[in-house]
Structure formats: structure tokens, C-alpha cells
């Protein structure tokens, strides 16, 4: 089941990547409205993944150690724009908070 899942995601992802490159010259370009919608996918999906993962407990909103560590990570991400420093700062913040508890 896991391999089938990876195959489906992999094949679908390939088709998304290949789409316009393959059809170029045979079809028109991507409609403007579609392109505008695609732009908002990363911010919308990523934030819908992040907030429930760091600010809920047993299905309810709850501020906990991971919420606070995430705020530190947001600040570092904003200042440094670095994946590396964001991970290091977020993990360090969580470990410090856990050690203090």
C-alpha cells in the first residue's frame, strides 16, 4: 500500500512537472486565473500543515512548548531566510523549553 501511494504521488507529480513543457506549442499557455491561484498554494497549504501540528492537543487549539518554539523559528526564518538556521533555532528552542519544564 505504501509503495502504491508513492507511485501514485510520483506519477502525479511527474505529470504536473511535465504538463506545459510537454504540451508547449500544441496548446495555449496557462490561463491567467489558474496561474494566479497556483501562486497561493504554497502559503495556504504550508500554513494549514503547520498550525495544527504545533498549536493543537487532542483536537483542540492549545499553546504549548512546540507553539513557542515555532514562534522562535518563524522569527529566525524571517530574519535569515535560511532553512538550516530555522531548523537549528526551532529545535534548540524546543529542547530548552522541555529542559525547563
Amino acid at each position: 500500500m505504501v509503495w502504491l501511494l508513492f507511485l501514485v504521488i510520483g506519477a502525479g507529480t511527474f505529470l504536473l512537472r511535465f504538463s506545459v513543457i510537454a504540451l508547449w506549442g500544441r496548446l495555449g499557455t496557462v490561463p491567467d486565473g489558474v496561474e494566479r491561484g497556483l501562486r497561493f498554494i504554497p502559503p495556504a497549504v504550508l500554513s494549514a500543515l503547520v498550525l495544527p501540528a504545533v498549536a493543537t492537543s487532542n483536537g483542540h487549539f492549545e499553546v504549548g512548548p512546540r507553539t513557542v518554539a515555532s514562534l522562535v523559528a518563524v522569527l529566525v526564518a524571517w530574519k535569515t531566510r535560511s532553512v538550516f538556521f530555522t531548523i537549528v533555532a526551532g529545535m534548540a528552542a524546543l529542547w530548552v523549553i522541555q529542559a525547563l519544564q
Binding site: L46, A77, L94
Partner: peptide, 11 residues
């Protein structure tokens, strides 16, 4: 916890 941290770095 590194998973949401990567998402934050991309978000």
C-alpha cells in the same frame, strides 16, 4: 518537530 520547522522555513 523538524517537519513543521521545515514547513515554517518554506512558508
Amino acid at each position: 518537530f523538524a517537519i513543521p520547522l521545515v514547513f515554517i522555513a518554506l512558508l
